[in-house]
Amino acid sequence: MSLATSEYLGIAELSGKELEKIMLRGGTPEPKDLAGWEYRGLNIAFWASRSPIEKFIKGFYLGQGREAGLVMGYNEPVVQNGPENPWIAKPSDADPKRFGFYRMERVDPAAKDNEYLHAVLLDYGKGGNFALDPAARLRDYLVQVEPGSNERLLGKAYLAIGPARIKSNYFLLERHKETSWVRPS
């Protein structure tokens, strides 16, 4: 079971200003290149270490059926055992719970969610979540920490409440393991 790298943990220690610089300087991931991979995720916020969602796993897959041709994704809850320890999915690594689905797409400059044009958007509103699911309010922007490499990705989460977009927090992803999981159509 792999642990987070020191680079990953180092980035998680950076200030908001430095993370914003990485957000601005980051490269644009190609959505299809992320499909078939799970990433270990870490929310970076003052509240994160005391919350049940400091650590999580994000997965990406190529959609099927109605989602054919699209890159979709999901979240998995993990054991909250601190960033230095392994990411262990809940209820088990073999059969994790998957929730908070999203569609991954290039940012449309003319759309409402156009905060970072060079990022990719994880749109939970188009992920097929229940309408009342709070996760459906999320809009995440994702960039490569080192342009050209999908090893580590930095994200910034927003809450979509009606026409308003409320900045939530940064999160960091690092390549975790391959996956062949696809949401049943």
């Binding site: 449309d108 400059p109 003319a110 409402k112 156009n114 044009l117």
Partner: peptide, 8 residues
């Protein structure tokens, strides 16, 4: 001014 739709 320059006109735009969003950032396009």
């Amino acid at each position: 001014r320059v006109t735009s739709k969003g950032k396009r």
